[in-house]
C-alpha cells in the first residue's frame, strides 16, 4: 500500500462525531473518528460492545437511529461528501455504491418475496437492464456465492434456506448492483464456527474479484486476522490504533490493543492465565477526561489524565492514539 499513498481513498472519514441527545445530556458515541479505506482494500473495524463500531457503519450509510445524529466531521466517498445528503440522495447511494451485509440475514431479506424477486428488483433499481438479463445476473451471482442449484433455488423464499445459505444470499444481494464499498456488520456472528469460514471466504473472494472495498465490522479478532488488510481498533467511540493487520496483531502499540490480544485464548497459547484488562469500557455518560483508557491502563502517567492523545504515526501506515507512542518512532 505504501506506493498508493498518493492515490485517493475510496472512503474517507474525518473527525466524525456522532451524538445522542438524551434527557441526562448529550452523549458522544463517536468522538473524532478518522480513517480511510483504499480502493479494493479490506478494513477491519474491531472493538468491544459499545465501542461504536456498528455506529460508524450506520453513520456512513446514513442509517443512524434517531435521536442519534452526526454532529461533526465529514464522510467522503471518492472525494464527494455524503454525510450531508438528503434521504433520497442517500437512498440512491445505498445499494448502488455501498452494499450492506448485516449480522442477522433475516433483517436484510424480506420474507414475503422470493430471492429472485429481491435480487432482480435490486439489480433493476440501480442498473438499466431487462428483466431477463437481471435474472441471468441474479442466478450467476447466487452461483458465485455458492448456492447449489442456483437456477432452481432462486425462486425459493428466504425461510427455505439455512442460516449460512441465507447469509450467502445477503452477500449476493449486497453485491447485486456492483457497489464500490461493502459494509459488513458482524456478518458471521450468528453462524456456527464451521460455517463462518465459508462465509468469510465467499465475502472476501467475491469482493476482491469485483474490486469492491470492504469495511468489516466485528468483535472477532480472528475474523479480522484472516480477512482484513488493515484494522482500526475502536475504544469508547475513538480510534485507539489503526494499521496493517499483521503489525497491529503482532506488535500492538496501544496498551488497549495489546491487552485485547493477550485476553483472547488461542489454540497456540501455552500460559495458564490470560492477560486481563481490569475494569470495563466506560459508559458513554462517564468517559474520563484525557485518554478514555486511562483508568484501565497499566502504563498511565499524568499526561494521560490531562489531554486526549490524537492519532500519531508510530510506524509506516500505523497510527496510534497514545501518549507513550513517539512520533514516527519504533
Amino acid at each position: 500500500m505504501t506506493g498508493d499513498k498518493m492515490k485517493e481513498p475510496l472512503l474517507s472519514v474525518r473527525d466524525l462525531v456522532v451524538e445522542f441527545p438524551t434527557r441526562h445530556g448529550t452523549l458522544r458515541a463517536l468522538d473524532q473518528v478518522s480513517f480511510d479505506i483504499g480502493p479494493g482494500e479490506v478494513l477491519g473495524m474491531v472493538g468491544e460492545s459499545g465501542a461504536g463500531k456498528s455506529l460508524t457503519g450506520a453513520a456512513i450509510i446514513g442509517l443512524l437511529e434517531p435521536p442519534g445524529r452526526i454532529a461533526g466531521g465529514e464522510i467522503r466517498l471518492r472525494g464527494a461528501r455524503i454525510d450531508n445528503l438528503s434521504y433520497e440522495q442517500m437512498r440512491r447511494i445505498r445499494g448502488r455504491r455501498i452494499g450492506m451485509v448485516f449480522q442477522d440475514p433475516l433483517t436484510s431479506l424480506n420474507p414475503l418475496y422470493t430471492v429472485a424477486q429481491q435480487l432482480i428488483q435490486t439489480i433493476r433499481t440501480h442498473m438499466d437492464v431487462s428483466e431477463a438479463d437481471a435474472r441471468k445476473r441474479a442466478v450467476a451471482l447466487l452461483d458465485r456465492v455458492g448456492i447449489p442449484a442456483a437456477a432452481r433455488r432462486i425462486d425459493d423464499y428466504p425461510h427455505h434456506f439455512s442460516g449460512g445459505m441465507r447469509q450467502r444470499v445477503v452477500i449476493a444481494l449486497a453485491l447485486a448492483a456492483e457497489p464500490e464499498l461493502v459494509i459488513a456488520d458482524e456478518p458471521t456472528t450468528a453462524l456456527d464456527v464451521s460455517v463462518q469460514a465459508q462465509i468469510i471466504d465467499v465475502l472476501k473472494e467475491i469482493c476482491a474479484e469485483r474490486g469492491a472495498s470492504v469495511m468489516l465490522i466485528t468483535h472477532d479478532m480472528g475474523v479480522i486476522a484472516e480477512t482484513a488488510d488493515r484494522v482500526a481498533v475502536l475504544y469508547a467511540g475513538r480510534v485507539a490504533e489503526i494499521g496493517p493487520v499483521r503489525d497491529v496483531i503482532q506488535h500492538a502499540r496501544h496498551p488497549y490493543t495489546a491487552g485485547l490480544m493477550g485476553a483472547i485464548p488461542t489454540l497456540e497459547q501455552t500460559s495458564d492465565r490470560l492477560v486481563q484488562i481490569p475494569g470495563a469500557m466506560p459508559r458513554l455518560n462517564s468517559i474520563p477526561t484525557g485518554c478514555a483508557f486511562n483508568p484501565r491502563c497499566a502504563h498511565v502517567f499524568d499526561h494521560c489524565y490531562r489531554e486526549r492523545p490524537v492519532l500519531r504515526q508510530a510506524a509506516p501506515q500505523h497510527e496510534v492514539a497514545c501518549w507513550l507512542t513517539e512520533e514516527g518512532g519504533a
Binding site: G222, A225, E226, I249, T266, E268
Partner: peptide, 8 residues
C-alpha cells in the same frame, strides 16, 4: 475452522 489469530 478456528480462525488463525497467531497469523501462523
Amino acid at each position: 475452522a478456528v480462525p488463525d489469530l497467531a497469523l501462523s
